[in-house]
Design a protein around this nucleic acid. Structure first.
Length: 574
RNA sequence: GGGCUUGUAGCCUAGCUGGAUAGGGCGUUAGACUCCUAAUCUAAAGACCGUGGGUUCAAAUCCCACCAAGCCCGCCA
C-alpha cells in the first residue's frame, strides 16, 4: 500500500521535473519521512539534485515543482517547505483502503524464488546454553522468521559439534574419570554435562597428562573404528541436545535440521576437499598441513590437519559449507564477532574449491558482538556464566510477581501461562532491539524490564484483544462491519493508520539488510500509537464504533505479526 | 604491533547510502483511574552526537589522526 503511494508520488515528481525543464531518472527520486507529521507523510529532496542543473536554489525549485505538480488522488496536497517537497496523504480515503487491505497475513510478502540455508545457535554440546549463546539463537531465529515473511524459503540448521575438544573432555570424564551424567545433582541433563566438563577442567589443572588422553579420544573418534566409543560420544551429545531443545523451545527458537559435523568425516567430504586443495596447490605440508591464503589478503594460514593427521573445526566447517551451498541459493550464518577471521578463511576455501565466486554474497554472515557479565566474559570452562534456563526462570518469576500485583482475579495456572509469555518476551525483546554490533554488558534490570519494552507491546495487544472480545460479546460481527460514512480519522487514528501502513515495506527492507532491530523498534512504535489512540478514543459504543473496531482489529493483527517475527507471543490478556 | 567493531543526555538506545528543530525509552519533576486493564497516557527538564582536523551549499552520518572499550591474530571452537 505504501509502495503504491510512493510510486504515485515519484511519478508526479517526475512529471513535474519534466515540466520545469529538468529531467531526473525515476530511480534517482528518493522519498523520506519528514521529521514530524505536520510536515506531511512523504518528502522529497530532488531539489538538491536539480539545483546545480537549473542553477537555482533548492527552495526555489521546490516552489516551482509544487506550482506545476499534478497532485495524485491519494494525496490531499503537496507543499514546499524550504527545499523540501512534502506530500500529505488524504486519510479520509486512504485509511479505509489500507485497513481493508490488512488481513491475517499482513506482512507476509509475495514469494521470492530463493532458498536460504540459515545456520544459528550451534553451541557446543558440553554444557547448558548461556546468555552468550542466546543472542545467536534470538537473532538467528528472528532472522529466519523475517526472511520467511519477506517471501523467501528458509531452512534453519543447527550444526552439532561432535568432534570438538570440549565434547571430548566430557567424554573423557565419563569414560576415564568414571563420572556419570545422572549423578551430577543438576535438574537438567545439559547442566549435568556442564558439571562434568567443569570437573574435567579442574582435574586437568592438577594433572596435565589428561590433555593427552583427550587428544587420543579425539583421534580415536575421528578414525571411527571403536563402536563403543562412537556410541558414548553420540549418547552424550543426544542427551545434551535434549536439554538444549527444551531451552530453545521455551525461547520459541526452532531448527529444521540438526547436522552433525562428524558426518562430513564419515562420508569422505573432508578428505576429498582437503586433497583437492592440496592438488590445486593452496594447501601445503609444512610443519603441518596449511592452507595458504595470501591470494585472498589473509595473512594467517589455516591449519587443515593436526600433526597426528586429525582434522580441525575449520576443516570440517569447509565441508559443511560446501554442503550448505548445495542445499540452497543463499547460505547465511549467525556468528559471534570472534569468528570473523575463521569465517573469512572458510569463505576463501570455498572460493578455492570453486564453489563460489570471490566476494560472493551468496555465502554471507551476520556477526554479533559479545554479551559479557559486569565481572567479565562468560566461560563454560570455569562455570562462570548465567544459563538461559536461569535467565528464563528469573524472568518468569519476576513476571509472575508483576501479574499477581496487578490481577487478583486470575488462577495460578493462568498467571503461569501469562508469566511465561511475558518473561520470554522480555528476554527476546531485550536482545532483538539492539544492533547486533553493540557489545552488551548484561544487567538483570535491563534484560527483564516489564515497564515499556516488550510488556507494553504485549499489553497493547491484550487491550486490543479485549476490545474485540467485548464487541463479540455484544454480538457484533467484525467481518460484517463497514466504515461509518462520516468517519474522518482524527490525529491519533491517522498516526495509527500511518504506522500500520509502513509494516510490509519495513519487512522487505529489514529482510534485505538482514536486521531485526528495526522490527523491534516498529513494534514499540505501533504499540505506542495504539496506546495513545486507546487512551483518548472510546471504541465500543462510540459514534465511530465500526471504524474504530476495524482499526483495533487490524492493529491487533499487525502487532501479532510483528511480534511473531521476534518470536514473541502476543497474549490475549495480561 | 596488525585487523575488525563500538563510543549519541545520569543510564540504555535509534538514526550512520550526508540534507528540515538528533527520534525513543529508563530514571528525574509535575499531572491524569466515578470512563473499554494506569504493564497506560499528558507535560517539563536533560545532548558542544568520544576528541581534534578535513571534504561539502550542508556532517551524528564521508575521509584522516588520536583517545577509550570489546573482540580476533591457536596443531581451541
Amino acid at each position: 500500500m505504501y509502495d503504491e503511494i510512493e510510486k504515485l508520488a515519484i511519478n508526479a515528481l517526475y512529471d513535474a521535473t519534466c515540466k520545469i525543464g529538468a529531467e531526473v531518472s525515476k530511480d534517482k527520486i528518493l522519498l523520506e519521512f519528514p521529521p514530524n507529521h505536520d510536515m506531511g507523510d512523504l518528502a522529497s529532496t530532488v531539489t538538491f539534485q536539480l539545483a546545480p542543473i537549473l542553477k537555482k536554489s533548492p527552495a526555489m525549485i521546490a516552489e516551482d515543482i509544487v506550482e506545476v505538480i499534478d497532485t495524485p488522488n491519494v494525496f490531499l496536497k503537496v507543499e514546499s517547505k524550504g527545499p523540501y517537497v512534502n506530500f500529505f496523504i488524504d486519510y479520509n480515503t486512504f485509511s479505509e483502503g489500507l485497513l481493508n487491505s490488512i488481513n491475517e497475513d499482513y506482512g507476509q510478502l509475495s514469494k521470492i524464488d530463493e532458498k536460504i540455508v540459515l545456520e544459528h545457535t550451534s553451541a557446543n554440546p558440553n554444557g547448558p546454553l548461556h546468555i552468550g549463546h542466546i543472542r545467536n539463537s534470538i537473532i538467528g531465529d528472528s532472522i529466519g522468521r523475517l526472511l520467511q515473511s519477506s517471501g523467501r524459503e528458509v531452512e534453519t540448521q543447527y550444526y552439532v559439534n561432535d568432534m570438538g575438544r570440549q565434547l571430548a573432555m566430557v567424554v573423557y570424564g565419563i569414560k576415564e574419570l568414571g563420572l556419570k551424567i545422572e549423578d551430577q545433582g543438576e535438574e537438567k541433563i545439559d547442566h549435568n554435562i556442564g558439571r562434568i566438563y567443569l570437573k574435567v577442567n579442574q582435574e586437568l589443572e592438577k594433572d596435565p597428562s589428561i590433555d593427552d588422553g583427550v587428544t587420543n579420544l579425539i583421534k580415536e573418534y575421528e578414525l571411527g573404528g571403536n563402536e563403543k566409543l562412537n556410541q558414548l560420544f553420540h549418547d552424550t551429545i543426544d542427551k545434551c541436545l535434549i536439554g538444549f531443545k527444551q531451552t530453545l523451545k521455551r525461547m520459541n527458537v526452532y531448527h529444521d535440521k540438526f547436522v552433525w559435523e562428524g558426518d562430513f568425516i564419515r562420508n569422505g567430504d573432508v578428505d576429498r576437499y582437503v586433497d583437492e586443495m592440496v592438488e590445486i596447490g593452496y594447501a601445503r605440508m609444512e610443519d603441518v598441513l596449511r592452507l595458504k591464503l595470501g591470494d585472498y589478503q589473509i595473512k594467517n594460514d589455516l591449519v587443515l590437519r593436526r600433526k597426528d593427521g586429525t582434522s580441525l573445526y575449520s576443516t570440517r566447517d569447509i565441508a559443511y559449507h560446501m554442503y550448505k551451498c548445495d542445499q540452497g541459493d543463499i547460505v547465511l550464518d549467525i556468528l559471534g564477532a570472534d569468528h570473523k577471521l575463521a569465517y573469512k578463511q572458510v569463505k576463501a576455501a570455498l572460493t578455492i574449491l570453486e564453489k563460489i565466486e570471490e566476494d560472493s554474497e551468496d555465502v554471507s554472515v551476520l556477526f554479533y558482538e559479545f554479551i559479557t557479565l559486569p565481572e567479565g566474559s562468560m566461560s563454560s570452562r570455569t562455570g562462570n556464566f548465567i544459563s538461559v534456563d536461569e535467565l528464563i526462570d528469573e524472568a518468569v518469576t519476576r513476571a509472575t510477581e508483576e501479574i499477581k500485583s496487578r490481577r487478583k482475579d486470575l488462577t495460578d495456572e493462568e498467571v503461569a501461562d501469562i508469566a511465561e509469555v511475558i518473561g520470554v518476551g522480555a528476554i527476546r525483546f531485550y536482545i532483538s532491539r539492539l544492533s547486533p554490533e553493540k557489545h552488551i554488558k548484561f544487567k538483570w534490570e535491563e534484560a527483564l524490564n516489564f515497564e515499556r519494552g516488550c510488556a507494553s507491546i504485549q499489553y497493547a495487544h491484550a487491550r486490543a484483544s479485549k476490545l474485540i472480545q467485548k464487541a463479540d460479546d455484544q454480538g457484533i460481527k467484525l467481518e460484517e462491519l463497514s466504515f461509518e460514512d462520516n468517519w474522518e480519522p482524527n490525529e491519533l487514528e491517522r498516526n495509527l493508520v500511518r504506522t500500520l501502513a509502513k509494516f510490509p515495506k519495513l519487512i522487505g527492507e529489514s529482510a534485505e539488510i538482514r536486521r531485526i532491530h528495526p522490527i523491534a523498534n516498529y513494534c514499540q512504535e505501533l504499540a505506542s500509537d495504539f496506546n495513545r489512540f486507546y487512551k483518548e478514543n472510546q471504541v465500543v459504543g462510540s459514534e465511530f464504533e465500526n471504524a474504530r473496531l476495524i482499526l483495533v482489529e487490524k492493529t491487533k493483527i499487525t502487532l501479532k505479526n510483528s511480534l511473531d517475527i521476534l518470536g514473541v507471543t502476543a497474549p490475549q490478556r495480561m
